[in-house]
């Protein structure tokens, strides 16, 4: 059984409460986290070259980032897109999750599968299709077209997370409210929504980060005047290793970390 595999061997390792499996796990965690740490450390480097360890401490890369108007504009566009896509996907996805898990609908399974499909069909394929569609509609290169594309790819996450939340709410609670005379709208507003609010919030964080980090759809759909932040980063990186990006990356890692912690809290609160 497990204890044999995770057995404490006598000797020094035992006193450290270590065993081969934990040692392996530690190495894997280093592999998973090392790139992030290296970027964070280098963001405070005084050197223009990617020397490691850095020769000295400096905040210069943070300074140049906040002075670069192009990067700041792109950051603004990315935030705009992520906010819009999050709100749209939460509204549409939550309504869909409600009707699909609370009512028996003819063709419900097929509809659910179609709404989950954007998760499985590679985003590059969706980008290729939307690129043509938006050209035919004459709205290529607009921020709106990126928002639509991001809403589509966020729908599966929202549907999955909110449906899971809804399944966890016992139907008897809603039935009890209805039996006691509450109307449908009151039951939903006072009973169901509060109970799934943490799921909705978790889905929203997930959607926001997905949209904010998404590259390929934005890359295909954006015009030079509406480039999102990941596009700017990609273009900067394709040509050379740009030390300013270490500062940007550190800010993102910090923001994402806050997002993950929040997500975990909400999941546990569920």
């Amino acid at each position: 059984m497990a204890r044999d595999v995770v057995q404490y061997k006598p000797g020094i390792l035992n006193r450290l409460h270590w065993n081969p499996l934990a040692f392996y796990a530690a190495i894997m965690f280093m592999f998973l986290l090392a790139p992030g740490f290296v970027v964070i450390i280098l963001s405070f480097s005084s050197s223009t070259f990617m020397e490691f360890p850095p020769p000295g401490f400096s905040l210069q890369w943070y300074g140049t980032f906040f002075k670069d108007e192009q990067l700041l504009t792109a950051l603004g566009i990315s935030l705009q897109v992520a906010f819009a896509a999050t709100i749209l996907s939460i509204l549409i996805g939550t309504l869909a999750a409600f009707s699909l898990s609370r009512y028996t609908i003819r063709g419900g399974k097929v509809i659910r599968l179609a709404m989950l499909a954007p998760f499985i069909v590679p985003w590059i394929v969706q980008a290729t299709g939307l690129y043509r569609l938006f050209a035919l509609l004459g709205i290529q290169g607009t921020i709106g077209s990126i928002i639509i594309a991001h809403t589509v790819i966020c729908i599966p996450f929202v549907l999955l997370v909110v449906s899971a939340g809804l399944i966890a709410v016992p139907r008897s609670l809603e039935d009890a409210a209805r039996t006691l005379g509450a109307s449908g709208i009151t039951t939903t507003r006072r009973i169901t929504l509060p109970l799934i609010s943490s799921s909705i919030a978790a889905a929203a964080i997930f959607a926001f980060i997905t949209s904010f980090d998404e590259f390929i759809l934005a890359f295909f759909l954006a015009s030079p005047s509406a480039e999102t932040f990941p596009i700017k980063m990609f273009l900067a990186l394709r040509d050379k290793v740009d030390p300013r990006l270490t500062a940007v990356s550190t800010l993102f890692i910090t923001a994402n970390f806050a997002g993950v912690i929040l997500f975990q809290r909400l999941r546990r609160a569920k």
Binding site: L33, G36, F52, M233, V241, V260, I261
Partner: peptide
């Protein structure tokens, strides 16, 4: 959470980190 963490860090940033680590003048 530590496993989840990279999951939430932009792919561009992580690819960039590997450039820094593995590049010809890298770590």
């Amino acid at each position: 959470l530590a496993v989840l963490f990279p999951f939430w860090t932009s792919i561009i940033i992580r690819s960039y980190a590997w450039l820094v680590l593995l590049g010809n003048k890298g770590v």
